[in-house]
Design a protein around this nucleic acid. Structure first.
Lengths: 249, 249
DNA sequence: TACCACCATATTGCATTCAATTTTGGCAGA
DNA sequence: TCTGCCAAAATTGAATGCAATATGGTGGTA
């Protein structure tokens, strides 16, 4: 008398987790679905502006429509999808303007994080970030973009964590999720010259953090994100123009 | 065979809107319920940490549990309520720590708004804010706290709007909603000395805005909110100690 | 041939229903 | 009287069903 019978594997592609997670009778199916659906969308499995077919996803996840619809409402409030009355959900496609806005908000949040971090960070955390910084510098010298980016993300994450503000951390994660789709493609957009510039900015960031100059760190972090914004927008408009004609509403 | 029979008015208090809104067959019932429920909670109709009784609210709003539960999920993602598995929703009671964090995030967002406003604000908008500023100063001189506060909120709102960033505007509104309950009670917490201090800060804010000194404005706005934070926390701990013993989980 | 009206189908929104977990009340035993 | 346990009631989580709206296709007319 299992409550959820995983949908017939022969009829529709069932994601592996649908079966694998049967073991962990944790808390709520809703949260599970929410996280899975968010990942599914963020990872780009549905084209920009494409419909999010309720019934199909239900079959895929092996659940009924109720928890899926709840998850969709939450994702809509997070800004990942648009919910048209009586016309279903569509994955929200970010206009260039929204992308700019998101980067600016991320910049503001990181700036805030830096300011707060200067108040609260422990010396050994600074040491850890210094270590990461030099590790990243190594990747820069070896022109290892992948490694560079991994450490880069980690440093920013460490700064946000050092703010000791879990509310900020959650908001940051939320906004980061919204641009993650873009970031995937923009990761390797960095022109060489921008790369060096970013590296220099990171040195200033580290310096300000060492001196615990909150206001200064706030400024440089915002500017750092602004420059990321510019690079991402440039990359996006280039690839957009090359690849995808505007999707009809 | 009407699908929804509005609950018997004699049995439970039905909010007036439940009947009044029958006329405007607008879009989704869900959004309507979401907004109404959010207001209902924000306005403090449910005690801090108290249970949010699904069935009772359904009766009150005259709907079934499905849309209400959807709304609850969204409110949970907004941080207004906690959702305990199999144990229903409780209005999230803000710890002092969370309150501090929220004020800091608000400060960060306002600081960001100020920075962006300096880039984008039109001259006539500055003139308008100046006008509001002097109007507020009048209320200050006449010791009219209510009027002062109204204009104060308006000025901050105008700055956020001048950022020309609707994403930021939405995030700001979200966080503002979370502390609105507190603000209601903290509105009149301002000590006289703090009041003068706030007024001086506002003059610096206006000055930085006039000179479009973004980084400077960002700093002062954050500090301004920090001072508000301190005042609110002081007020809250005072009244908390006086009025309410800690609510058991 | 192009355009519009109309009908069949699919999809969505919400209510209802059912299973499962928690909570409560009571009872027995210490 | 207090404690532990068990059963009944209440409440939640998820599935299903039904009405309303959108979608897509067909036929008729200009």
């Amino acid at each position: 008398m299992k409550p959820v019978i995983p949908s017939d594997p022969t009829s529709l592609p069932v994601l592996p987790e649908a079966v694998a997670d049967a073991g962990r009778e944790e808390s709520s199916l809703h949260d599970e679905i929410l996280a899975r659906l968010r990942d599914y969308i963020v990872e780009g499995n549905i084209p920009d502006g494409g419909r999010v077919p309720e019934r199909q996803l239900c079959a895929m996840f092996g659940i009924s429509r109720t928890p899926l619809r709840e998850a969709l409402k939450v994702l809509a409030s997070e800004g990942l999808v648009d919910l048209l009355p009586n016309r279903g959900a569509r994955v929200r496609q970010l206009s260039e303007r929204e992308l700019r806005e998101l980067f600016d908000v991320m910049g503001g949040l990181e700036g805030l994080a830096g300011r707060l971090a200067c108040e609260n960070i422990a010396d050994e955390e600074i040491t850890e970030i210094e270590r990461l910084h030099y590790e990243m510098y190594g990747f820069y010298l070896h022109r290892d973009m992948h490694g560079y980016f991994r450490i880069n993300q980690l440093i920013h994450q460490k700064i946000v964590e050092a703010s000791r503000n879990v509310t900020l951390l959650a908001a940051y994660a939320n906004f980061a999720g919204r641009i993650r789709r873009i970031r995937y493609s923009a990761n390797f957009a960095r022109k060489r010259e921008r790369w060096g510039e970013a590296m220099r900015e990171h040195e200033i960031i580290l310096d300000a953090l060492r001196r615990r100059a909150g206001s200064e760190l706030s400024d440089i972090l915002f500017l750092h994100l602004r420059n990321k914004q510019t690079a991402a927008i440039e990359h996006l408009t280039e690839t957009d123009a090359a690849l995808s004609p505007p999707v009809p509403a």
